[in-house]
């Protein structure tokens, strides 16, 4: 795999993630898309790390992974708390705050 392949792969992942964030209405699928967004950056970092021949990128990936895990934990906790009120995980049902 060349660096260009890494770039294409991460670009595709980013596009899929962004598409998911915009289109999806189910909060769990939305979280998957968010993870995809973060992981596309990880793929890019690892690819560039290989290209540049130093480890800054690889270490950055660990930090991004840790942050992604923390985000997922907090996000799921919020969704569970919301589910108790609405019995649903659909973003359309969380809409008392508007305009």
């Amino acid at each position: 795999m060349t660096t260009f392949d890494f770039f294409v792969l991460s670009g595709l992942l980013f596009a899929v993630g962004l598409f998911g964030v915009i289109v999806r209405r189910n909060v769990i699928s939305l979280f998957f898309s968010l993870e995809l967004l973060l992981n596309s950056a990880n793929v890019l970092l690892v690819g560039f790390s290989k290209l540049q021949g130093n480890l800054f990128g690889e270490v950055f990936v660990f930090f991004v992974l840790a942050v992604a895990a923390a985000e997922a934990a907090v996000g799921l906790a919020v969704v569970v708390a919301l589910y108790r009120y609405r019995k649903s995980v659909n973003t359309e049902d969380f809409s008392i705050l508007r305009w």
């Binding site: 950056a41 890019l44 950055f60």
Partner: peptide
């Protein structure tokens, strides 16, 4: 995520 993607490119 958008910021970190930009950072990856800068790296």
């Amino acid at each position: 995520a958008v910021i970190v993607y930009g950072f990856a490119l800068l790296y």
